[in-house]
Simulated scan of single mutants.
Amino acid sequence: MKKLFAFLLFMVMSSAAMAEDQIYTGTFSNKAVDGYDPVSYFMDDMPVKGKSDFKTEYKGADWYFASQEHLDMFEAEPEKYAPQFGGYCAWAVSTQKDFAPGDPEQWAVVDGKLYLNYNKNVKKRWDSDRTLHIKQANENWPELINK
């Protein structure tokens, strides 16, 4: 019984001490932005899925692109095209001071930066005061990612 208790305590403490990855990729994938082409958010009306022919690694995640041109653009300036807060939900980082998955279909480009949100309802909350939420998230992000 003592061994079981010690094991359970170890598991709880280990998971609490684990830091989140800098880039959200989901549990069973290493694809940033769920395989969407991050450059397409800045170029097209709707984001498009990337192709395995046009792929790169950045901050430990795999990034996919629709074309060689988009891949080249990203590799030249990854910070310009990568979503803010590693692709985690911008509203969760802002208001919850926590991590939540970012949905690549719930997005906004604000002042040349890409933001993702958890779902449509959360995005509506985030949209209600983007300036405040971006300010709060920018303040919370360094502490969250450095836990």
Results as ranks from 00 to 15, higher is better:
1 M>F: 14
3 K>T: 15
4 L>R: 10
5 F>H: 14
5 F>Y: 15
6 A>M: 07
9 L>Q: 12
12 V>K: 10
14 S>P: 15
14 S>G: 09
19 A>K: 13
20 E>M: 09
27 T>W: 13
34 D>V: 01
37 D>T: 05
37 D>I: 05
38 P>V: 00
39 V>K: 05
39 V>P: 12
43 M>P: 04
48 V>T: 08
48 V>R: 12
50 G>V: 11
53 D>N: 14
55 K>V: 12
57 E>M: 07
58 Y>L: 13
61 A>I: 05
62 D>P: 03
65 F>V: 04
65 F>D: 07
66 A>D: 14
66 A>F: 06
66 A>Q: 15
67 S>H: 05
69 E>V: 13
70 H>N: 15
75 E>M: 10
78 P>G: 13
79 E>Y: 03
80 K>E: 11
83 P>T: 04
88 Y>Q: 08
90 A>C: 06
90 A>H: 02
90 A>V: 01
91 W>G: 00
96 Q>C: 10
96 Q>K: 09
98 D>H: 08
104 P>L: 01
105 E>I: 02
111 D>Y: 06
112 G>F: 02
113 K>R: 15
115 Y>T: 02
115 Y>E: 09
116 L>I: 01
117 N>Q: 04
118 Y>T: 02
121 N>G: 12
123 K>W: 02
123 K>Y: 01
138 N>V: 00
138 N>P: 03
139 E>K: 15
140 N>K: 09
142 P>R: 02
142 P>Q: 03
143 E>G: 14
145 I>W: 13
147 K>A: 11
